[in-house]
Design a protein around this nucleic acid. Structure first.
Lengths: 107, 107
DNA sequence: ACAAGTACCCACTAAATAGTCAGGTACTGA
DNA sequence: TCAGTACCTGACTATTTAGTGGGTACTTGT
């Protein structure tokens, strides 16, 4: 595991993963339950969603809160760090949105 | 190949790949030859570097210019689109740099 | 003659990542 | 009792991504 060579390198490592950007995007508007996330991010399997959420949790990006209820309720939200990450991601989102057509065409 | 759901999704697809952020970072200061890039981005293999460069070229992010000389010379540089991407990546780089210590610790 | 530098390509393997499917608990409502 | 919801876990497979080691063609330096 080589050390990060620049901030971008470190950030890429955190958001790398097929579903992480979508998760971050979904959580932008507030806390969400597991099931809500699953419905929101269509195409993701339960397993992958859990896996990616756990990774983001381990990195301190998302917070996982279990409510001891029946049926069970688990809420995921962005931490302070997660929110600051999302802020840093905004220009990138705008860039992607702006050039969406060209990008769609070239893949 | 699902359509992009948001700009972030599209952008992540473009910069996704083990070496792409490093390449973008390296080209930030101007055009570079293949060999220079290889030396700059230590740890990358020739094959991966070529592969990722080709992908970035196909996406319109980098420009490849061949000089018909012996020994051969090929120069890679950022296109307008590539430069705008790099600008959008700057906050992310800063975020990564700022939280480098926490991020290093949690992997 | 021969190694070294330049910018690659190709076949193959290994590792990382993602997906499928079956299960498991602790309930609620019919 | 039986289906249904919510939130998972673990075994296994498939796909994608990355790495290894070889080869090309040509020239300059020793």
């Amino acid at each position: 595991m080589r050390p990060y060579t620049c901030g971008l390198d470190a950030a890429a490592d955190v958001i790398g993963g097929k579903w992480k950007p979508r998760i971050l995007w979904a959580l932008h508007h507030g806390p969400m339950r597991f099931g809500e996330l699953r419905r929101e991010i269509q195409g993701v399997t339960e397993k992958m969603l859990i896996q990616q959420l756990r990774e983001l949790e381990a990195r301190g990006i998302v917070h996982r809160e279990v409510f001891h209820q029946v049926p069970p309720k688990v809420e995921y939200s962005l931490t302070e760090l997660g929110m600051s990450l999302n802020v840093a991601l905004m220009p990138l989102d705008e860039w992607g949105a702006k050039h969406m057509d060209v990008l769609e065409a070239s893949r």
